[in-house]
Amino acid sequence: MFSKNGYTLELATSEAAVGSNVPLQFRILDSAGTPLIRYADTHDKQLHLIVVGLDLTGFQHVHPELDEYGNWYVSVDFDHSGGYRVFVDFTPDGGDGITLSADVRVAGLYEPRPLPAAATATTVDGYTVSIEGAAHAGQTSKLTLSVSRDGIPVTDVESYLAAYGHLVALRASDLAYLHVHPDGHPGDGVTPAGPAITFYANMPSAEDYRLFLDFKHDGVVRTAEFTLTADSATTPVSEHAHYAHHGH
């Protein structure tokens, strides 16, 4: 079972076939085994679902629909065989935020792809996203991601999930899920709408991490992907990562 703080993620099935728009159904159970039906909104949604291959490819961030019985429904893409990790990020009504995870096995021959090398810039759909700021293990690191298109800074990034960007960070070695916090928010009178989007992240150990930035421009949400290497801190390393419990 995949439990934390008394809550358990229960997938309807842990096996799937390769395909697009594959139905995924699950429930969040409380400590009594009762489906959770009351959630507090976090970043404009009751629940955020992240899907990524165990080789850190095929990233998706989607928002399932909840029925009155506590069943969640969504469609995701399983574009290659092998294992995928499913993360659910939510806040029970009146409670604290929780991240749970479970694995789905997708039938077929698994040929994992190597982790891309660490880089300070990446491109997606004609946009270039660059990253500034060093990541130090065991410390809060300030990371600034800047968006440009055709060499021109984008200064009208649109609000998405109550922020100018949503950043997911996963440790490459074991897919530990890190909580990353944006700096400021749209409409606060001080946070500009790009090109720079700033986040604070805690990297628990000196190794590689995979970062996924969702940003919205011209009405379309795009995802920029980075590999970032955290270096050894000068202070003792402490485990600041928010771990999502999972099984194999």
Rank of each mutant, 00 (worst) to 15 (best):
L167F: 08
T13H: 11
Y160S: 11
P186D: 00
H246I: 03
A134N: 13
D174K: 15
V74A: 10
G165E: 07
G6R: 07
S238L: 10
P64Y: 03
A121L: 03
T99K: 02
Y209C: 14
A119M: 07
S173H: 08
L54V: 05
T91Q: 09
S31P: 00
P195F: 12
R149I: 06
V106D: 07
A137C: 10
R105Y: 15
K45N: 00
A16H: 07
D79F: 05
F199Q: 01
Y110N: 11
T229F: 13
V74R: 07
N21M: 12
G97D: 06
G6N: 08
F212P: 00
G194P: 14
A134F: 09
Q25S: 12
D183Y: 13
E207C: 12
F2D: 14
P192C: 13
D93C: 02
E10Q: 09
S75M: 11
A134I: 04
V154K: 06
N202W: 08
L36G: 06
F212R: 01
E15S: 12
V124T: 04
H80R: 15
F87R: 06
G6W: 14
N202A: 02
G33A: 07
S173G: 05
P23N: 11
W72I: 03
F78V: 09
F87I: 10
V168R: 05
H43F: 14
V168S: 09
H80G: 05
V104L: 05
D93G: 01
T140S: 08
V157H: 06
S3H: 08
T42I: 13
H48I: 02
D77F: 01
L167A: 10
G189E: 06
L56R: 04
D44Y: 09
T155G: 02
V124G: 04
V168D: 03
Q60H: 13
S238F: 12
L9D: 07
W72L: 08
G187C: 02
Q25G: 10
A16S: 10
V154D: 07
D188N: 14
A224D: 04
D55S: 03
G58M: 00
Y84T: 11
A135G: 11
H185K: 11
P116Y: 00
P92S: 02
P204E: 03
Q25R: 13
E68T: 12
Y110K: 02
E68H: 03
D218N: 10
H242W: 09
S14N: 14
A233C: 08
H181D: 15
S173A: 14
G53A: 11
H246E: 04
H136G: 15
P114F: 12
P182M: 10
S238H: 04
H136T: 15
A32N: 08
H248N: 01
T140H: 06
E207T: 15
D44K: 12
L228P: 04
S101N: 13
L24F: 05
H48W: 05
I98Q: 13
P192H: 15
F87K: 08
V62A: 08
V221E: 10
V190L: 03
N5Y: 05
T8F: 08
I50C: 06
W72M: 03
P195M: 10
I197P: 03
D188P: 00
E225L: 01
G82T: 01
R27L: 04
D44A: 15
A196G: 06
S31Q: 14
Y7W: 01
F212G: 00
D96M: 09
G53W: 01
F78L: 04
Y243H: 13
V51E: 05
L175G: 03
P153K: 13
V168E: 04
